[in-house]
């Protein structure tokens, strides 16, 4: 089961409040989308429609912006987000192997979310910690000097 987007009245009013502020600024769409992504964890069509009505921008256009940027997503992400840095410094130090290991151990394709909605696996671009390459992050936590062994350990811990 894919985790469903949780749209509550409370979150909606949070979005509305954010839009009230941004509407007054020039170029309100990006800040609004950042807010929506933060509040709901993704920006599905119903949310896009609300933004469309409020900012008078067509839904297709909003979706065009949402799908253009890697930071926004239309589908909800998993409970845990594993991101492996594929910046050059990390790549030449073997981060592809780490990504493959996560993909194998979590049984999920890169960019996808596991069926139980527990994990999303992403490849990210440089997060600027190249001195510690290869790097990966699980949710907010950063793991430095990654290795396949470390992946195994982390996955075990996450699954338990």
């Amino acid at each position: 089961m894919r985790s469903k987007v949780n749209i509550t009245e409370e979150k909606l009013s949070e979005l509305k409040a954010a839009m009230e502020i941004h509407k007054k600024e020039p170029g309100p769409l990006m800040p609004t989308l950042h807010a929506a992504q933060k509040i709901f964890g993704c920006i599905p069509l119903p949310i896009q429609k609300i933004i469309s009505n409020e900012l008078d921008v067509s839904i297709a256009r909003i979706n065009g912006v949402v799908t253009f940027y890697g930071h926004f997503s239309v589908e909800p992400k998993g409970k845990n987000i594993v991101s492996v840095c594929l910046g050059t410094a990390c790549y030449v130090k073997g981060s592809q192997g780490i990504l493959d290991a996560f993909s194998h151990d979590l049984n999920v394709k890169v960019g996808d979310t596991t069926d139980d909605g527990m994990f999303t696996l992403e490849a990210t671009r440089c997060i600027g910690a190249c001195g510690l390459a290869p790097i990966f992050t699980v949710n907010e936590e950063v793991f430095a000097n990654g290795s396949v062994q470390l992946v195994k350990k982390v996955v075990q811990k996450l699954k338990s």
Binding site: I127, G128, A129, C130, G131, L132, I135, V142, A144
Partner: peptide, 13 residues
């Protein structure tokens, strides 16, 4: 004066 390197690298480490 104790200066702790507190950039992303430092935080990550």
């Amino acid at each position: 004066r104790v200066q702790v390197g507190y950039g992303t690298c430092g935080i990550a480490a």
